[in-house]
Design a protein around this nucleic acid. Structure first.
Ligand SMILES: [Mn+2]
Ligand SMILES: [Mn+2]
Ligand SMILES: [Mn+2]
Ligand SMILES: [Mn+2]
Lengths: 221, 221
DNA sequence: AAAAATATTTAGACAAATCTAAAAAATTAA
DNA sequence: TTAATTTTTTAGATTTGTCTAAATATTTTT
């Protein structure tokens, strides 16, 4: 089966919103896609007719098994292209998402499988998110949120939860990227901000909000 | 300016059909795009409104200077992707066109210029067609049709005029590719077919029709 | 120079994807 | 448990790109 660009964007967004299979609401999805609830309802009917969605009106919705499969293949394309843009074409971290948003809709399966091979079957994209393989399998990670660390622990950034331009800009400004080693020096109970240290740079403070969007893995001191 | 996928396909087809600026007809373009004359008329009005086209009804049409610029940028994308698919992803000659037909509509200028650089600024695509540079300049070649050779002349295949699957399949079957050296052994006046010889293979005959679709360059004997 | 044939355009319809405004259902508050 | 609020759906338009059938213009033939 082949889906329109619009259908694909809906499927992908529902996948991200439903997480571990919670029901998604109409308003939530409308906001995510910068569209109107009425437009969402229209598309839900269409996706239900195509059996990609479990949906009864006023009851919320979530992807069917088939819908999840489709979502994973779109995400596979998106992340492989992001890897290509970053590693082969030397795009900056915060420029790749937008271009991948277009490339992900080119549907040739052979293209994607050949690209995967050419890139050496990468397991994670440049933001640290796992890349599904041909079968939709994704590598699992044992990452935790930066906010879960306690003072004096050291960890390595493994991915970011939020890939908005604002977020990526802020990370760049703070010299934080995938693989960066962070040591938590102090946690401030007042506003839950953290003082952290990176390499030989002077220690500095980041907000709870930012730390909540950074996943890390423990490393030995 | 940004154009829809459909608009881009029309612009590109008009560019190919008008060649050195002859007027294109509605039926001709409808056939090329596998659509109906009425649909063509509708799109012509739209492209004229956008000043991409010189068009007066019933009089035929051709691209404006701006239209040609747009056409060249689409062709640039198409051919760069074909080169990428062939050289980097090892796609076969006759599989690349279809995929490039989708990739060409991804419009990021930065993507294309970076891809161009990554590929080493190639001048010709895998079919031998010139790739326009950032400014729309295309390398000129001194190729002639295979049918223009006389008996005993030797030439090297530089491009093919027709890239249909049927054509590419036939070329492959006859061991003809870009760069292949061909010696014309005999020309038959009866049906204008040619007997040709390639490397150490036994000489064989090809139709006028096929020879009319192969461009060659002279080489010294 | 008519008549016939061909090419092109117009008229009207349709599917996909979106929107605004209004109605209906579900949830929350009084 | 009504009433108010919020969420979701329906109704009706709009835009883009396409189509068929019919009308009109142009070209070719007689
Ligand atoms: Mn992304
Ligand atoms: Mn997308
Ligand atoms: Mn091509
Ligand atoms: Mn195309």
């Amino acid at each position: 089966m082949n889906y329109s660009q619009s259908e694909e964007n809906y499927i992908k967004s529902i996948y991200h919103l439903q997480g571990d299979s919670k029901n998604v609401s109409t308003n939530e999805l409308a906001e995510e896609l910068h569209t109107r609830p009425a437009s969402v309802t229209d598309m839900l009917k269409k996706l239900k007719a195509k059996k990609l969605l479990h949906y009864e009106k006023y009851q919320g919705f979530r992807l069917s098994t088939e819908g999840k499969k489709v979502a994973l293949s779109i995400i596979r394309r998106h992340r492989l292209w992001e890897y290509f843009l970053s590693v082969k074409l030397q795009f900056a971290w915060d420029e790749i998402h937008e271009v991948a948003e277009e490339l992900e809709h080119v549907s040739s399966k052979k293209l994607i499988d050949k690209l995967d091979e050419y890139l050496g079957f990468p397991k994670f994209d440049p933001h640290g998110d796992p890349i599904p393989d041909q079968l939709g399998k994704i590598a699992t990670t044992d990452h935790i949120l930066l906010t879960e660390l306690t003072a004096n622990q050291i960890a390595e950034v493994s991915s970011v939860a939020n890939q908005s331009a604002a977020m990526l800009d802020m990370l760049k400004h703070n010299n934080i990227g995938i693989g960066t080693r962070i040591e938590v020096k102090k946690k401030f109970p007042f506003d839950h901000s953290l003082e952290i240290k990176i390499r030989n740079l002077p220690a500095f403070t980041i907000s709870e909000r930012l730390a909540q969007n950074i996943y890390v893995k423990y490393v030995k001191k």
